[in-house]
Design a protein around this nucleic acid. Structure first.
Lengths: 231, 231
DNA sequence: CTCACTCATGGCAAAGCTGCGACAGAATGT
DNA sequence: ACATTCTGTCGCAGCTTTGCCATGAGTGAG
């Protein structure tokens, strides 16, 4: 199943040129000449990557608007702007809109292909959640699933088995609230709610012993706990 | 807990310039002048992003080699090449090595910052699963069911559990009137009518604290409440 | 304009949740 | 067998949230 790339570009010649390049690399290609038909198609089904020209004929800046709409539909759809304008300002604006890359049309076809491949490589690397990657890093935290060891700010934290799995459950998705039931599942046990509280207490104590200002585990009243990621 | 960016660049002036830029954006910065010290540091601990100059003084193409070694250590460490050479061929080579971006040094500081931010945005977006399902956006409002967070005009709103579910019930279908019974169901409880009123009062107060002109929750006399969509 | 009804507000007490210390049984190592 | 560590609970104190009431303002039909 090859990756599907959508091109939104008003000039037929350019469109076909890029499409041919992508096809040569083994991608499936969808083409759209304007914002509306593209958006309608995307609402039905999202491709794996969208390449957008900003200036779509009379629809000036239509590409920007399209990007904005797409970002509302999907947070993680890869988007590349490909435009005639060589303006630093536009590039910054485009990236701020949530695009992954901003390229000008004087780019060579091999270079474009390399950038697309790099983006897909990045996606693939991220996609598999720690497959083979037995090392989980979240800012100051480092979890080694093989050794079952934990490090905080490069210092070892002596967590027990249950504590380890609970930290893992929390830190795997920083910011997400885990309720007590979910933490129980992580520890593979059926426990009293209070017991979860106790574990969290012990985990916190061990981290605080190392880092006096540790506060990465946030209590969310009535909901559970949340690992505060890096921001 | 800010993101940590490592800069590997032999010219002190350029190094400091970029470092200052990154620090201004709130990142923590590590600096290295050559390949060896950088690699040694990385073996102990990886940063969140590495910015590499390809030509490291007498160690020509040392940046390429560093990138290669880093990719062996980690599949998904973000790497950006930043170099004086403006060669399409080098760019393609750099990207093939597994870099995420290849930039020339004539890039403006804001543009560089935008690209770094875009890369981090991409990483964050990938880190969470199916965020499309759990994210509700209605104009200025943003509800994240995984994180149990509410944002209004990009500012966090500290709602409690019950308040969260009531906002969710209202905002899910903007413009639709929800009667008190329906809101009770959202909170999964049987309550007095007055209690609903109290909750709405508290919710409104919390939003108004952030946005003085907040009025997205409309009272529909005799029927219930309605979330006003964005127009 | 009046009246009956609905809604907003401040306040308060009950209920619920969390953190902490303590303790006992289970598991583990010596 | 004994000491140590790990786990699961309990009770309590402190805090947050929640439910409800009294009161006054707002609304709409007649």
């Amino acid at each position: 199943m090859s990756k599907r790339i959508a091109i939104v570009e008003d000039e037929a010649a350019i469109r076909e040129n890029y499409a041919a390049g992508f096809r040569r690399e083994g991608y499936a290609v969808d083409m759209y000449a304007a914002r509306k038909p593209a958006l309608e198609a995307f609402e039905a089904r999202l491709p794996d990557l969208v390449v957008i020209d900003i200036n779509l004929q009379d629809d000036i800046e239509g590409g920007f608007e399209l990007c904005r709409r797409l970002r509302q539909i999907s947070e993680d759809l890869p988007i590349i702007f490909l435009t005639a304008r060589d303006s630093e300002f536009d590039a910054v604006s485009g990236l701020r809109l949530g695009a992954d890359d901003y390229l000008t049309k004087d780019i060579s076809l091999p270079h474009l292909m390399a950038r697309v491949a790099a983006l897909f490589r990045r996606l693939d690397a991220m996609q598999r959640p720690d497959s083979g990657q037995s090392l989980v890093r979240r800012g100051d935290l480092e979890l080694d699933l093989d050794r079952m060891t934990v490090r905080w700010q490069d210092q070892s934290v002596g967590l027990t088995l249950t504590e380890f799995w609970m930290v893992h459950a929390l830190a795997r998705y920083p910011g997400h609230v885990k309720n007590r039931q979910q933490l129980m599942d992580a520890a593979q046990a059926v426990l009293d709610d209070n017991t979860i509280t106790s574990h969290v207490k012990r985990i916190r104590r061990k981290f605080v012993e190392i880092d006096h200002s540790f506060d990465a585990i946030e209590t969310v009243y009535g909901m559970g706990y949340r690992w505060l990621g890096s921001q």
